[in-house]
Write a protein that binds this DNA or RNA. Structure first.
Lengths: 130, 130
DNA sequence: CAGGATCCAATTGGATACTG
DNA sequence: CAGTATCCAATTGGATCCTG
């Protein structure tokens, strides 16, 4: 079982840096995408699989487990047939979602600018051969 | 040359999703770490290399190039001996930094809670063997 | 439906040696 | 100093098959 890392590499450098902390938690686009998707209410596994676009069954499972482990998601199993599992954000994750909004808002506002900067950069290396 | 991706895989799914947009830009812990480090003023290459803790020469270079390409950093070369290169955030990146503050603040506030959730989770799978 | 397990391909990233 | 280039190890992640 890869992932759900044993967190050994952290301890080495001392850890405790909050910036690092948040990144290890949230980095990897799937985490954020899931948090955003679950922000409006409980979601089911298949629902996430369809709405996330491009995520594999494996990565969805892995990411969900990690988020659950970090206390950002709760997983509720209903003993029905067929089984039904719901994921929902914890209060802590709802707060995180608020912070993420500021981030996605920034992205939306600067999408054009970023795209332009990129093309300009690429064009420049093209003419003088780097 | 790996990295500085050709962005082909995006186009396939249609792209344009701002959430995705921001993630591809900012994801990868080094980017955020660099932005935070450069937020207070111009920084030099070696300065970053020392202050980032754990980053390799290679990743630092690669990440700096990507940030520059996206218009988040400017790179200024001074024709001195030895050479001196300074990186500084663009206005757009300064704005991003503000958003990131809300994120790191969240991380700081919930560090304990996350750690506790983790240990609880791990302890649970330990007793019943998953 | 909601995953777990496995296999394999691709990407990421560190270490290191070299250069203007 | 500020990188670039190269080699190789580790991680990531997709595809697939199986099950309660």
């Amino acid at each position: 079982m890869p992932q759900v890392k044993t967190e050994a590499p952290h301890e080495i450098v001392g850890e405790a840096c909050p910036v690092r902390e948040v990144l290890d938690r949230v980095a990897g686009k799937w985490s954020i995408l899931i948090i955003v998707a679950a922000a409006r209410g409980p979601v089911r596994f298949t629902e996430l699989e369809r709405s996330i676009e491009g995520i594999s069954r494996r990565m969805l499972t892995l990411t969900l487990r990690n988020l659950e482990r970090d206390g950002l998601l709760t997983r509720t199993v209903y003993a029905t047939v067929p089984p039904r599992v719901e994921y929902r954000l914890t209060d802590m994750a709802q707060e995180l979602h608020q912070s993420l909004l500021s981030l996605t808002d920034w992205a939306t506002r600067h999408r054009e600018e970023i795209s332009a900067a990129r093309h300009a950069y690429d064009a420049e290396r093209l003419v003088d051969g780097r």
